[in-house]
């Protein structure tokens, strides 16, 4: 889908107008941003917004997220283990110390 983010009041209200008059291309709406259908029509409305507000509209293309394809097993294991920790207020960095679970810094470094 196309993620449309607006950064000024006028761009935000233009986005609101698109949502009102072209409901069919707007998959979801979050106030000042929205997901448009990844169709030519979705792109058309996204680009129209950017044409009108060149510096205040960001358009990104989203991809479906499949953690079983994109995320290594060790990260998923760490998630499960951390959610089952004994003390609810143990921060992850303390939880991971001295275990095989990846530490915060190395996860931050590795791109998906």
């Amino acid at each position: 889908m196309l993620l449309i983010i607006t950064y000024t009041r006028s761009a935000r209200s233009s986005l609101r107008n698109v949502r009102r008059s072209h409901e069919d291309v707007v998959v979801r709406w979050f106030g000042r941003s929205a997901l448009f259908e990844a169709t030519e029509l979705g792109a058309f409305h996204g680009l129209r917004l950017r044409e009108k507000h060149p510096e205040a509209v960001q358009i990104e293309r989203t991809r479906p997220f499949n953690e079983f394809m994109a995320v290594p097993q060790r990260v998923r294991d760490a998630v499960r283990a951390y959610s089952e920790r004994e003390h609810a207020n143990t921060p992850y960095s303390a939880f991971a110390a001295g275990t095989d679970h990846p530490d915060v810094a190395s996860m931050a470094r590795r791109e998906l």
Partner: peptide, 10 residues
């Protein structure tokens, strides 16, 4: 960075 400033202004 520009968007951060836009956010602040908004």
């Amino acid at each position: 960075q520009l968007h951060d400033r836009h956010d602040e202004r908004l």
